[in-house]
């Protein structure tokens, strides 16, 4: 299996602090990979490097063989990497369906002139985008809630709405940033099921998580970071037994 996403010797420092130091790993196409580590391990920095919010100081990030370091965030989404946010970031005042349509934006093209003149293709595009948005809502279990304002949805539903928005962008790689944060046990169970169904659609998933239990259940390959460096990598059962990982998680103060 070829690597869909490839990080090689990626380094990012802020002032004197090395947030991510010389990290390399692959995300193979079709897989569910977990990126874990204690708080402050560099997970979110790694994430921001992949999504274009930061530019790496050294090293390369390749997506489908193409270097994406330094590309603008929206261009990276268009290239096929969609994301969710650690602290839910929805368009709170807009209905669920319009939130999902934001993800559809980069796959549609009608501009101001088309809005003014409304040629038939524009109407068709709008209709197809709306239908797709409704399907994505159904896919994540929010069927029938399309017209509810995002702010009126329960927290777990807001997280799933974010996933629907990301999926609407036709991503090849979906990156979920702490998707189980703030979820109860039942919602986390549903999330594991949802990740499996996303995988069945052929979308590769990179899961960034603080919570070990979700990662162990959902991922087939896990990368462990500590103090900005990769300390272990492998299948869940091996990671669970790895003394370095146990030390990182139990030997430090767990925030």
């Amino acid at each position: 299996m070829s690597a869909l996403l490839e990080l090689r010797n990626v380094t990012k420092s802020f002032g004197g602090l090395t947030a991510v130091g010389d990290v390399s790993f692959d995300v193979p196409a079709g897989s569910v990979v977990g990126l874990i580590g204690p708080n402050g391990a560099g997970k979110t920095t790694t994430f921001n490097l992949i999504t274009g919010n930061y530019v790496p100081d050294h090293g390369t990030i390749r997506f489908e063989g193409r270097a994406i370091g330094g590309m603008r965030t929206n261009a990276i989404v268009r290239a096929g990497i969609a994301r969710t946010f650690q602290n839910v970031r929805l368009f709170q005042q807009l209905p669920a369906v319009e939130n999902v349509l934001a993800g559809r934006h980069c796959r549609t093209r009608a501009g101001a002139l088309a809005a003014f003149l409304r040629p038939p293709w524009q109407a068709r595009e709008e209709r197809e985008a709306a239908a797709r948005a409704v399907r994505e809502l159904e896919f994540v279990g929010l069927g029938g809630r399309a017209l509810e304002l995002a702010k009126n949805l329960a927290y777990g539903d807001q997280r799933r709405l974010e996933i629907a928005r990301a999926l609407a962008a036709d991503p090849k790689l979906l990156i979920l940033d702490e998707p189980a944060g703030g979820m109860n046990e039942q919602e986390t169970d549903e999330l594991v099921g949802l990740i499996a169904r996303i995988r069945a659609r052929g979308v590769t998933t990179l899961l960034i998580e603080h919570d070990m239990s979700l990662v162990m259940r959902a991922c087939e390959h896990i990368v462990v970071l500590e103090y900005g460096e990769k300390i272990a990598e492998g299948p869940p059962d091996a990671i669970q037994r790895d003394p370095k990982v146990i030390e990182a998680y139990l030997g430090t103060e767990d925030a």
Binding site: T51, R72, T73, N74, V77, R78, A82, R83, F85, R89, L90, F91, Q92, Q93, L94, A102, G103, H105, C106, R165, A166, A169
Partner: peptide
């Protein structure tokens, strides 16, 4: 509503 979320959505 949220320029960062907009950019992150493409």
């Amino acid at each position: 509503e949220d320029p960062i979320a907009a950019e992150g959505s493409g």
